[in-house]
């Protein structure tokens, strides 16, 4: 494995992404929208009167006992939004990942690339990182903006809940691993299909299980704690390694050249 070649592939892909405004725009829209959702929910909660909440029979969960009712609602809604913020970056690299190999095949730049000493592992790693890094950076940016909004619109105890270990592990460990998994799955699909549109359509389907696990948390089927998040991150690391290996295997240098002429 030559890191110089991996860096070269990352730099080239990065340059192309930066010069394709539509890709950049489509990647940036969802995180911005999610920050808007965080702000919108806080504005909605700001209109709630604690007395009304008490009248409606709202009882804060045990961990939030002692907080005023409005702050407790803010924490609960923020927790839900945090999960969205962790899941959002899994969707961002799909377009780039799905294009990564079949796109080069369609523009006929794949054969000159494969005729160089670059290995399949270097190509897969370089392309995965090139799609993943902007997605993770956008994910971290949306988290920073969301935290800034929470800090500005709520009290210190609510902010403290938003940056408790569960979400720190979630955002800094689980989120990149989740995004890495969706990127690698998109690369696998890109290596196996015959055109870009099919790659993008299938790739958006393969992230459904990832999003589905998020939904399971939201509907209470999985109760998230810091240890669950750490365990999930460990499992994701193993999954990422497995799918990475599969991506290298799926990238048959010969078959991909032979398939479309």
């Amino acid at each position: 494995m030559s890191w110089r070649r991996v860096r070269a592939i990352m730099a080239r892909e990065g340059l192309e992404i930066r010069r394709n405004r539509m890709v950049l725009l489509s990647m940036s829209l969802l995180p911005l929208l999610m920050v808007g959702v965080v702000i919108g929910s806080l504005l909605t909660i700001a209109g709630l009167v604690p007395a009304d909440l008490a009248k409606q029979g709202f009882v804060p969960p045990p961990g939030l006992a002692g907080m005023n009712l409005q702050a407790a609602v803010q924490v609960l809604v923020n927790d839900q939004n945090m999960l969205y913020l962790i899941l959002t970056p899994t969707l961002l690299p799909i377009v780039i990942g799905a294009y990564s190999i079949i796109g080069e095949k369609e523009t006929r730049s794949l054969e000159p690339l494969l005729a160089t000493p670059v290995t399949t592992g270097e190509i897969v790693l370089g392309k995965t990182l090139a799609a993943l890094i902007p997605a993770v950076l956008l994910g971290l940016l949306q988290f920073a903006l969301a935290i800034a909004a929470i800090g500005a619109m709520t009290s210190a105890p609510v902010l403290a809940q938003a940056v408790r270990p569960l979400w720190v592990v979630g955002v800094f460990v689980a989120m990149p691993l989740l995004a890495g998994l969706s990127t690698l799955l998109a690369v696998v699909v890109s290596a196996r299909v015959n055109d870009v549109r099919t790659a993008q359509a299938i790739s958006s389907l393969v992230v459904l299980p990832i999003v589905g696990s998020g939904v399971a948390v939201l509907v209470g089927q999985i109760y998230l704690t810091t240890s669950v998040m750490v365990a999930a991150s460990g499992a994701l690391l193993v999954l990422d390694a497995l799918v990475g290996w599969l991506a290298v295997r799926a990238f048959g240098r010969e078959s991909i050249l032979s398939r479309l002429g």
Partner: peptide, 15 residues
């Protein structure tokens, strides 16, 4: 050891 000129140039158009 080899240089290959493919039938279609296959350049990166945005570069």
């Amino acid at each position: 050891s080899v240089g290959v000129l493919t039938e279609v140039p296959g350049l990166y158009a945005r570069l």
